[in-house]
Amino acid sequence: MTQETATLTTDRFRRRKGPARAGQCLLICLLSFGLLVVEANIPAVQKVRGIGELMLVPVQAAVRLVSGGFRGVQGYFRDQSSLMSENQEMRTQLLRQEVDLQQMASLKSENEVLRSLHELNAQLGSENLTAETLPGNPDPSRHRVTLNKGSRQGAYVGQPVVGSGGVVGQVTRDYLVTSEALLISDASHALPVMFERTGLQAIALGTGRRDHRLLLPFMPFHADVIRGDTVVSSGAGGLFPAGLRVGVVENVRNSSGEAFLEAFVSPSANLESLRQVLLLRSQARPPGRETAPGAELPGAAAAGS
């Protein structure tokens, strides 16, 4: 670009500057802010958003293609020996779990917690929805996943999401063919839980940290909580069924001078790399409300316990 054309460009640019430009900026800002307020207060706008989301399906497909390439490259570099050792590990784990399962059957009649798990099993067998995660959480500071099932397949806002290890999160947006789930580790998520060993109730708050740990704050100072305790959902909020495995206590913090005990829990579901999840049909959900929004928000779940 020569000197002359450069000055020309800037001159033309400067002519449009000034109060008109500031006014335009203000107008757009006000409009955007209005849109934000409207979307936050009128749930129907979510449906409009769903239409926009539908138009972006081809874009998402393209992104999936690219990220599939990423995954392929990652998988290529993972060498075979590590895969084999992983396989071996899984075999021994399976064996151990089979033994555990047999013990469970014999203790079923006496053990309260095992019974609730058994009830859960029966419940899980009925009419739940399997979904797969779609790649592309663009904001790593928020813990969310996009699922490939939407309101057409029966997903609804507030639906509990469970993975193979335990509780994963809940559906926060149901579009037509996809939905968005908030993970329990997100900083805005709260989940009523219970200690399997002692029955102590607590709230598991997401921390938003990269290691997906949960925080159990404000427990009585002398509560019997030790490292390795299993934490299950208590069902107190009415959203998640009771007895779903949530995680294992990783460390307990009771510094003297503090009034309460805190515990960090590492989730037992593999939130790092989710693939297949189960969308539960919650018992508490009133029938005939197929897509009604605002079934129960995380905050409401916390308040209910």
Binding site: L35, L36, R49
Partner: peptide
């Protein structure tokens, strides 16, 4: 729309 943040 793409990222899923509040519209606007």
């Amino acid at each position: 729309l793409l990222v899923g943040s509040p519209l606007g």
